[in-house]
Simulated assay, not measured.
Amino acid sequence: MFHPLRVSAIERITDDAVAVTFAVPDELRETFRHLPGQHLNVRYTLDGQEIRRSYSICAPAVEAPADPVLRVGIRMVDGGAFSTYALKELAVGDQVEAMPPMGRFVLRPRPGFFAAIVGGSGITPVLSIAATLLAREPAARFCLIRSDRTAASTMFLDEVADLKDRFPGRFQLVTALSREEQAAGLPSGRLDKERLTGLLPALLSVTDVDGWFLCGPLGLVQGADKALRELDVDRARIHQEIFHVEDGPAPAARIDAPADSTLTATLHGRSGSWPVQGAESLLETVLRSRSDAPYACKGGVCGTCRAFLVSGEVRMDRNFALEPEETDAGFVLACQSHPVTPEVELDFDR
Results as ranks from 00 to 15, higher is better:
120 G>E: 02
151 A>F: 08
100 P>F: 11
16 D>G: 11
301 V>H: 02
299 G>N: 09
74 I>W: 01
230 E>R: 12
235 R>G: 01
132 T>W: 06
41 N>A: 12
78 D>S: 15
266 T>E: 09
112 G>V: 03
294 P>T: 06
8 S>Q: 15
204 L>G: 00
107 L>G: 05
133 L>G: 03
219 G>K: 10
323 E>M: 12
335 C>A: 08
262 T>R: 11
110 R>V: 12
271 S>T: 14
222 Q>K: 14
245 V>M: 05
60 P>W: 00
231 L>R: 08
165 D>G: 03
41 N>P: 01
233 V>C: 02
124 T>Y: 02
245 V>P: 08
330 G>W: 04
166 R>S: 07
100 P>C: 11
222 Q>D: 14
336 Q>S: 07
166 R>G: 01
279 A>W: 00
270 R>V: 13
276 V>E: 04
126 V>M: 04
23 A>P: 10
167 F>I: 07
207 T>N: 00
64 A>I: 05
326 E>Q: 15
239 H>Y: 13
7 V>H: 08
282 L>S: 04
203 L>W: 00
350 R>D: 05
288 R>S: 13
126 V>P: 03
199 L>K: 05
25 P>F: 13
85 Y>D: 12
15 D>R: 15
90 L>S: 10
143 C>D: 02
56 S>W: 05
101 P>V: 08
165 D>R: 15
184 A>S: 13
149 R>I: 11
90 L>Q: 09
151 A>C: 06
122 G>F: 05
106 V>P: 01
88 K>D: 15
50 E>S: 08
168 P>K: 03
50 E>L: 06
213 F>R: 03
241 E>A: 09
105 F>T: 02
171 F>W: 12
132 T>N: 07
349 D>R: 09
105 F>W: 07
322 L>A: 10
326 E>A: 13
94 D>R: 08
260 D>W: 00
294 P>E: 02
243 F>A: 09
224 A>P: 11
43 R>K: 15
48 G>E: 08
214 L>H: 08
114 F>T: 00
149 R>Q: 14
313 E>I: 01
316 M>C: 11
147 S>T: 10
257 A>Q: 04
29 R>I: 12
10 I>P: 13
207 T>S: 00
7 V>G: 08
272 G>K: 01
30 E>I: 07
277 Q>L: 11
74 I>E: 04
227 A>N: 11
102 M>R: 10
130 A>W: 03
291 S>W: 01
214 L>G: 05
34 H>S: 07
92 V>T: 15
130 A>S: 15
15 D>H: 15
175 T>L: 11
204 L>W: 00
230 E>V: 07
205 S>R: 03
258 P>R: 04
91 A>E: 13
259 A>S: 12
78 D>W: 06
164 K>D: 11
317 D>L: 13
220 L>M: 15
341 T>H: 05
118 V>S: 06
260 D>A: 14
339 P>K: 00
346 L>S: 05
249 P>T: 10
331 F>I: 07
31 T>N: 08
296 A>Y: 04
239 H>C: 02
45 T>F: 02
75 R>Y: 00
61 A>F: 09
127 L>M: 10
106 V>G: 02
295 Y>L: 03
244 H>F: 14
48 G>T: 09
102 M>S: 14
163 L>F: 10
71 R>L: 03
318 R>E: 10
138 P>D: 07
299 G>V: 06
28 L>M: 12
211 G>L: 01
275 P>A: 13
38 Q>H: 08
120 G>Q: 05
